[in-house]
């Protein structure tokens, strides 16, 4: 197959950047999108053009390292990450525009590589259960209804790729924040510090400069882990309750 690529090239964090045109020739339909870029990069190297810099690691849809927006959609068409996107999904001869994930809190470092440390800092603000190795009771001492465990698992499946904020017209990280809040907040182990966690994580997301949720649901549409936007409702509810409690001095 053959494709006409429009690829965002940017020298460094402060560079202006623009789209460059490349051709991808002789691409097998079974190749993944990243393998297509590998082939293009080998070709560019042979021609003496610096290869396109893009992040990828596990290449099986779980590490969340790829950060490409393909034809305006983070991770490209279909559910899943870019590494799980296969070229047979595209038309032969199609023009494909590749840009980095865009959000003010994800500065572009080079070409298609973005910095997503803001997500790590949100996790550090409260995305954990305070507990130390050796202090845990027996794993079966607290039964957890299967439905609750399943819902927690649905939310815990987040891979932290940043596609939600990249797809959101407001650059909002609410799906990411609420996935973690929902995962930990549903489980009995996570309840003791739920209020504290919710307030801290939302405040950190605000501080990082992520936008506000306008309920566009673009995040849900692109999320490779299939996190439903209803987790944001869970977050909103918990945040409001936690705020009320904090305001009248009950907890936190």
């Amino acid at each position: 197959m053959k494709f006409y690529l429009e690829v965002w090239r940017q020298k460094g964090p402060d560079g202006a950047g623009k789209l460059e045109h490349y051709e991808a020739n002789d691409i097998p339909a079974e190749a993944s999108f990243l393998e297509m870029l590998d082939i293009v990069n080998e070709d560019l190297t042979k021609k003496g053009i610096e290869p396109i810099q893009f992040d990828s690691d596990c290449r099986e849809g779980i590490c969340g390292n790829c950060s490409l927006t393909i034809n305006g959609v983070p991770h490209g068409p279909g559910r899943g990450t870019t590494c799980q996107l296969y070229m047979r999904k595209f038309r032969d001869g199609q023009i494909i525009t590749i840009e980095p994930f865009r959000a003010d809190s994800f500065p572009v470092e080079r070409d298609l590589v973005v910095n997503r440390e803001a997500y790590d800092r949100i996790m550090q603000a409260g995305g954990f259960i305070s507990e130390r190795a050796g202090s845990a009771p027996d794993a079966n001492s607290v039964p957890i209804p299967k439905v609750v465990a399943d819902q927690a698992m649905d939310a815990a499946a987040c891979i932290g790729c940043g596609a939600c904020a990249a797809a959101c017209p407001n650059g909002s990280a609410m799906l990411f924040v609420s996935a973690k809040v929902t995962h930990l907040g549903l489980l009995p182990q996570g309840k003791p510090e739920n209020d504290r966690r919710v307030l801290k994580m939302v405040r950190q997301a605000d501080k990082e400069g992520f936008g506000n949720c306008s309920n566009y649901y673009a995040c849900e549409a692109v999320c490779p882990a299939g996190i439903p936007a209803s987790v944001i409702a869970h977050l909103n509810r918990n945040f409001s309750f936690a705020s009320i409690k904090e305001s009248i001095g009950i907890t936190v």
Partner: peptide, 15 residues
């Protein structure tokens, strides 16, 4: 340790 951290291991209906 992992259960205490909130790892959502698979469970049976009895919890």
């Amino acid at each position: 340790q992992c259960v205490a951290q909130g790892v959502p291991f698979a469970r049976e209906y009895g919890g």
